[in-house]
Amino acid sequence: MNDNPDTRGTPVGRRVMLGVIALGAAGVAAGPTLSKSLDSVLSGLSKQDPTGLTGLLPDAGGFRYYSVTGPVKPVAAADYRLTVDGLVDRPAGYGLADLQALPQHRIVHDVQCVTGWRVPATPFEGVRLADLLDAAGVRPGATAVHFSCFDGSYTESLTLDQARRDDVLVALKMQDQPVSHDHGGPVRLYVAPMYFYKSAKWLSGITVTPTVQRGYWEQNGYDVDAWVGRSNGRDDAPTG
């Protein structure tokens, strides 16, 4: 009896390894079904979990925080500024109070991320982007809108037709609370019928442009017209 590998003994190591690989493959095949049922169990659990630990598990539901730059410095409500410029007759700047004074609209849709997570029935409330565009007076020759953000890096875009939809908001509230910093507050874009990367966080500038300028993720391969269920190779149920 010795320890030499060539004197046989059961190849348990190899069996364990192949077993794990087989389980993994089975998991990929059964994943779509499994993750749906786990999703409902876990989101139920996390609602009753005072520690919030279940929120750290995969598929526990809820929003995930994505930022494309380093830590984003919060902007106080009093210091917030949104500019509207480009191909417009009346460039404008809005403080938070100015935006709050405009007609507010509340819409409730699912939020769908292009990476797969979905948050059901999330209320957003704010000013219609169409109202801001009308107030500025879009000039002939303009076909698109470009968005910039005070994180310094993120950008987004919409065509004018998309931007004028009723379910595209400059959102001041999310889940009936003022939009928090982590969710892109004090003011973020909300494009209900599209994947959530179109809903730029920390919105600071709206520029009307002659053509579509692709946004941050769109320069990295994501679709510009990001309709939920009809783009990015995905077939999620529409949110719009």
């Binding site: 069996r15 993994g24 998991g27």
Partner: peptide, 18 residues
């Protein structure tokens, strides 16, 4: 140690594939 080696080797392959 033997079980760990076999398990982690399989896990790395699955993580890589997925």
């Amino acid at each position: 140690q033997k079980l760990y080696a076999g398990w982690i080797a399989g896990a790395v392959v699955v993580m890589l594939g997925s």
